[in-house]
Design a protein around this nucleic acid. Structure first.
Lengths: 96, 96
DNA sequence: ATAATATATGAACACTTGCTCATATATTCA
DNA sequence: TGAATATATGAGCAAGTGTTCATATATTAT
């Protein structure tokens, strides 16, 4: 297949989105529907700042999308690709 | 789904296997069949030491398997899970 | 306007990661 | 046995990551 270095880097970046337990947990919540930063922070027992920092990275990778409503910002998954990767990975961890 | 912290960590570890361009390229070569450390090093233009260090990590994550033959060690993918993650990720990068 | 609330951001720091270089181990060959 | 070859490993280091803490920005309520 002779993967180009560029694509190797892009692939690595994509998988990096799920290479941290906090981000995995954020995504696992967003799979169930959109959530505000503070709701995520409470659900994950993380500070809002830490969640916000992670969301920023996920936003830049186009993994999540932000929707502002008043002073809250609701995040949701950008598309179904990451969700598919997530569930395939979970299968591997659970029954692999 | 209420992902446990343990599973979040395991998932993150699994995706970490593919979160670095060198490892992605190693895996992309191993998808085509088993290879010795030196063949990988040459194909990837990496030192054998660097390749060996990465293979060690992949071995510990049970992503690759080692088969010794004389003084060479041939590596191959442990199962098809990672290959599936890889090709799904590649789809996303190429047409996503 | 002022205060309160929700989120974002930057700096700082501890921790991790991936490499190089030197060295060790194992195997084959002379 | 000793030299050569293939791989593995440990130390050290530069670069990257994820958090906290302080502060900034935006929005709403009084």
């Amino acid at each position: 297949m002779n993967l180009t270095e560029l694509k190797a880097i892009q692939l690595a970046e994509l998988f990096s989105a799920l290479s941290d337990a906090s981000r995995v947990r954020i995504i696992s919540l967003l799979i169930e529907g959109e959530m505000s930063v503070s709701a995520l922070a409470e659900g994950l027992k993380m500070t809002e700042s830490a969640v916000s920092h992670q969301l920023r990275g996920l936003r830049q990778m186009r993994i999540v999308r932000a929707r502002k409503e008043g002073r809250q910002v609701f995040y949701s998954l950008e598309d179904e690709h990451v969700q598919k990767l997530y569930s395939m990975g979970l299968d591997h961890v659970e029954y692999g």
